[in-house]
Design a protein around this nucleic acid. Structure first.
Lengths: 253, 253
DNA sequence: CGTTTGATTGACACGAGTCAACACCAGTGG
DNA sequence: CCACTGGTGTTGACTCGTGTCAATCAAACG
């Protein structure tokens, strides 16, 4: 399965082959977007949903005072615009950080899924709630952790999520963001991010160069970032889904 | 309609009377919880979903180093535990700040809604995505705003959400949290929150006493907090839902 | 080549944390 | 009825993490 979206969905949802084929039929022709270009902007009402197939996109909100917060980095397999169907209007913007390839899903198709394909609808719903769990974790990260730990934590999350879609190779992944952008994501100035990165590098945890992030000591990085990945709900091993839909009916103690 | 949950759902979702009655039939006997007690804790797999009918509850995550981040204050009408059905396991905890009354919805009922009541399922899904939008806004608040603006912003949001369920009277609402707790929500120490509250009071914006928060100048408070409520998707006036499900089919310019 | 963009460095300013003392109040028990 | 208690709010002095500003450097690029 080279489709990262289906691969991810399949891994933690009880979807039939027919479900997967149906989702495939729902997606329109792939759309390419050059790097560093807005995909949707705050307030817009995009006519279709979007799934990210390749590339890196950033969600962000622009403040009146000129500052900008990057809310999330989205990776291949992420259902990056479900909002337009469920909420209509977007409350934030998205921009392509690298050139991207996206698969559209029409609102009509989404509506049909809700009407007649409950397993798929629930899988999408689940994706949305995992997204919310990730935002919660960013709240914790921004609210409670000092710079060094915060950046470490952010890197751990990215690594995990990329690993889940097979985009982590030798603990290294493509991550062509400037220190300015990193700062806008973790809530620090570029200058301060620079100093933190230097410390992380000096400590032998990660290096960021040539548009790649390389993790040299995953375990120590996770300890430094106080990282605990259960909020990502990736564990294929541990069956997250509760006692519904007949996969198992005994809630485990 | 004294049921704040149905009232809120109805306001921004195209639900029929029959839908509403069905939701009512899905909810079990109301559950009362005394104040200051954990409702669910991280890692648990609650057997039913929960809707908050009365009281104030706080979501939080406890860190290893002893610090705690309050992720959200939940108010009557909030679907506080949808997670247990969609994700199974909880990734954070919830505690009652005041005595609370909650309505359970069984996972079986939820499953039936997904299977056979798409309008309701979509309405719930929408609630989940609004929750995520609120977390996004907290990310911005924690990442970009200094103390004074941050606290002001948090108060504005609470006021808006409480207003939507008729719990804001004369720009004042019940809010019996300590400065310590407020600090854990906005990412500051209690001491610093104290100084910020004094400034807000001195500036004639808000007072917090006797377990109530009173807003004396809503407009100036919103300006101070750089508050813009569109992310709450409350606007009954502006039809947020896009061109689906036949309510209207022309997207407005 | 110059130009531009991003990374790096240093000096200094400032917002927020820390620690400790004190005030205030509700409750409790003698 | 009053002493005592514990929790919360308040204040001040000091520390420290992060921001600001500005200069320099390196690499990419036209």
């Amino acid at each position: 399965m080279e489709n990262p979206f289906l691969r991810k969905l399949q891994k933690s949802n009880p979807l039939t082959d027919e479900d997967l084929r149906f989702i495939e039929r729902c997606t329109g022709a792939l759309r390419d977007v050059p790097g560093d270009q807005d995909i949707v902007t705050e307030g817009e009402r995009p006519p279709t949903c979007l799934v990210l197939m390749e590339g890196l996109v950033g969600r962000y909100k622009q403040l009146r005072n000129g500052r900008r917060q990057i809310l999330a980095f989205q990776v291949p397999g992420d259902f990056i615009d479900m909002h337009s169907f469920v909420l209509g209007r977007l409350d934030h913007s998205m921009t392509s950080i690298t050139p991207c390839r996206m698969a559209p899903i029409s609102h009509n198709a989404m509506q049909e899924i809700v009407n007649a394909h409950p397993r798929i609808a629930l899988a999408f719903w689940r994706e949305a709630m995992i997204e919310a769990a990730i935002f919660r974790d960013w709240v914790v990260n921004l609210g409670q952790r000092p710079a060094y730990e915060r950046v470490a934590h952010a890197f751990c999350e990215l690594a995990c999520r990329l690993d889940a879609v097979g985009q982590l190779h030798d603990n290294s992944f493509r991550f062509p963001v400037t220190q300015e952008e990193l700062g806008q994501a973790v809530g620090f100035t570029a200058v301060h991010v620079n100093r933190v990165l230097q410390r992380l590098r000096a400590d032998g945890l990660v290096t960021h160069e040539g548009g790649r992030l390389t993790i040299h000591d995953r375990e120590r990085l996770e300890r430094a970032g106080d990282f605990e990945p259960s909020y990502l709900y990736l564990s294929g091993s541990d069956p997250d889904r509760g006692p519904q839909k007949g996969r198992q009916s005994e809630p485990q103690v």
